[in-house]
């Protein structure tokens, strides 16, 4: 366990040494909220305020960025440059590496979520989640679904560039089609069906719902689908995990 925490701690430190990833993970979502806020915050259709809809959504989006970029793309790079292969020649067990990266990803995600929430509270009078336990559980389930999903998808890439390309594709698809940025109700019917295929859709329903409306027990369908994704992608990610491309 000592090694897991040491590695997680180091990886977190190294994340903060890379200014670009700090910008995309922490500042970009805040800037987006601020931009959308200056456009829409006055005239929201429906019963909820701008912040009540969009802060939980962007917290959901950040699960996607963390899984695909902080975890997936970075590990694809480690595979390409031989970092993982070097580990492989030591007594370090494989699960410890994955555990360390999961811990690191979770820490970075939590920081970004708190940042968004505080920004919402200060700028847009956002209230803390109505069912805080439910929201935390929803976040946990979402991470459980997305981390292994992204690890699996990016492990199909040959190198860092293609891993980053795959990640950008998934991020943009989900960003625009899962209701995180544009209300689903405004989309054509076909796209509404597409949205429901994307896992982020369920994360966002769950986060918005537990934040503003009801405890997690009311969202059986979403929880079920996300747990299903979690099980399938954990199986796939561990079966197809590779140390190197040779």
């Amino acid at each position: 366990m000592n090694t897991v925490m040491k590695l997680a701690n180091l990886e977190t430190k190294m994340f903060f040494r890379d200014r670009l990833s700090v910008f995309w993970t922490f500042l970009f979502p805040v800037v987006m909220i601020w931009l959308f806020g200056s456009m829409f915050s006055g005239d929201m259709a429906g019963p909820f305020t701008f912040a009540e809809v969009f802060i939980p959504s962007w917290i959901g989006v950040n699960i996607v960025t963390t899984s695909f970029f902080t975890l997936g793309t970075v590990l694809a790079g480690y595979r390409e440059t031989g970092v993982l292969r070097r580990y492989q020649s030591t007594p370090l067990q494989p699960w410890k590496i994955l555990a360390a990266h999961t811990v690191q990803g979770t820490v970075i995600f939590i920081i970004s979520a708190i940042l968004l929430m505080v920004f919402g509270m200060v700028m847009y009078d956002l209230q803390a989640p109505m069912y805080i336990g439910s929201t935390l559980l929803a976040l946990f389930i979402s991470i459980l679904a997305f981390f292994p999903f992204a690890l699996f998808v990016t492990s199909l890439a040959k190198n860092t560039q293609s891993a980053a390309a795959i990640s950008s594709l998934f991020l943009n698809l989900m960003l625009f089609l899962s209701g995180a940025t544009f209300p689903i109700e405004m989309m054509p019917t076909v796209l509404q069906y597409v949205a429901k295929v994307l896992p982020l859709y369920y994360v966002i329903q769950l986060l918005r719902g537990t934040w503003n409306e009801a405890p997690i027990s009311e969202f059986g369908l979403e929880v079920g689908i996300l747990l299903g994704i979690a099980v399938v992608s954990i199986v796939l990610a561990s079966r197809y995990f590779r140390w190197s491309d040779q």
Binding site: K6, L7, E11, M14, G82, V83, R85, T90
Partner: peptide, 21 residues
């Protein structure tokens, strides 16, 4: 020609790998 993490300090790498044994 393999590398370790680009942003890892020499000291940190030595510490980390020491902890494997």
């Amino acid at each position: 020609a393999t590398s370790i993490q680009k942003k890892m300090k020499v000291k940190e790498a030595l510490d980390l790998f020491s902890s494997f044994y």
